[in-house]
Design a protein around this nucleic acid. Structure first.
Lengths: 226, 226
DNA sequence: AGATAATAGAAAATCGATATTATTAGACAT
DNA sequence: ATGTCTAATAATATCGATTTTCTATTATCT
């Protein structure tokens, strides 16, 4: 009796959902720059839908801290700043460490398999398809934390991840050509995770984030000076 | 003649804002029980406004984790569970400790004055006006953290505070008649904060939360058994 | 009977139009 | 000139109606 009757696997997403994903993407990749006014009419013509789903999508994005809402004065994309960047990096390090430790303490076989698979896929993806790679990169990092039984914490980590990735895109995909081997960093983190070595995994994960963070910070300040 | 200029300081809030505050309050105090279906039409007749501001308010509440959204299937209030309660308590302890330590390290004279005032107001408020007291109680706790220069962290703490207060209301305002002196606990925390003694303040704050948490947990399990 | 399919009803999602409110540009006085 | 008020314009917020999607019920078949 508990067998699912209405098994439509491919139901169309609602207009709100489409708008949400489209606008979110445009903000993350920098298509909609920070502080940009988001006019309903303009988004309507781009996305070809009525105002209601647009407004609702924007409201959802407010919770992601990607959009700011000014009562009676519409919406705009969130501003960026060095202090905001530093704050996100710092919070991310704290929360992901918490989540990773709890994840490793609960980790089971299925989790381990999934992690290995997502790592493999990420490593195989050519860097040319930037958005696709970033998607896989996020999946890998989130899968590290995924055995953590705290949905709220995972939600926070997910949000902070997106806020950070936005800065990466805004940095114009500048690549850190210093002596880092990003591929190896990921592999090392995965191996420590598979070994359930929480201390090592956390140390390497945070180094991974802080190194990228320091690089981006430098990039932004150089850019501002020029 | 329209005498109303844009110099009007007291502008009335938008319908969305009114709906947001009203629905949020109803969820927090338990007027709308956990898991309750939130039908637009019903809320429309209660709040006497169109569907659009209702939907927008509900969407805002999704970000507060007080409402769940099921694509194409409307909204419902968030479910509660022992594990959710434990999760919130735990996260709150971690994040508030972070925030409190940073707050104390930045704390200035103005912050101190404000803290003392909010503490005073809270202590003076008779417990009979429950909602008013809870408002002041929240203000006091948030003011402890307020010198922390991390808006995102403060937002998280604020959200978690509200999620927790909901459980307090759902426990039917049961009062912990054990040997605790809640008033003294607050005063002690404030004094440690004013002394910039982060270790002591954190210890006492977390004890304060964990004691209440343990009491509520016991209350819920007793209630479920009866 | 038990399960699947068809259908009617309810609710959500969306649209287009209207009412409100903010912004801009221009007129006027100081 | 400079600042303030006013009218016009643009954009937001909201409403009521329509379309689409879900849900519950009944009908049909094996």
């Amino acid at each position: 009796m508990a067998i699912k009757m209405h098994t439509d696997p491919a139901q169309e997403p609602s207009a709100t959902q489409r708008a949400y994903l489209a606008i979110r993407r445009m903000i993350l990749i920098g298509d909609l720059p920070p502080g940009e006014k988001l006019k309903i009419e303009k988004l309507r013509s781009i996305l070809e839908m009525g105002g209601s789903p647009i407004r609702e999508a924007l409201t959802l994005l407010v919770s992601d801290l990607l959009v700011e809402r000014l009562d009676q004065r519409g919406f705009r994309t969130a501003e960026i700043s060095p202090s905001n960047f530093a704050e996100i990096l710092n919070l991310r390090c704290h929360l992901e460490e918490m989540a990773l430790r709890e994840s490793l303490s609960n980790a089971d076989h299925a989790w381990e398999d999934k992690l290995v698979i997502t790592h493999h896929r990420m490593m195989r993806e050519p860097r040319t398809n930037v958005e696709r790679f970033e998607e896989l990169h996020k999946t890998f990092h989130m899968n590290l934390l995924n055995a953590c039984h705290s949905p709220v914490l995972l939600k926070f980590c997910n949000q902070l991840y997106d806020l950070n990735i936005r800065y990466r895109y805004l940095a114009g995909r500048a690549i850190d050509y210093s002596k880092r081997d990003i591929g190896k960093e990921h592999t090392d983190i995965m191996n420590a995770a598979v070994d359930r070595d929480a201390d090592a995994a956390c140390r390497m994960l945070l180094d991974h984030y802080r190194n990228t963070g320091a690089f981006l910070e430098k990039h932004f300040s150089t850019e501002a000076a020029e």
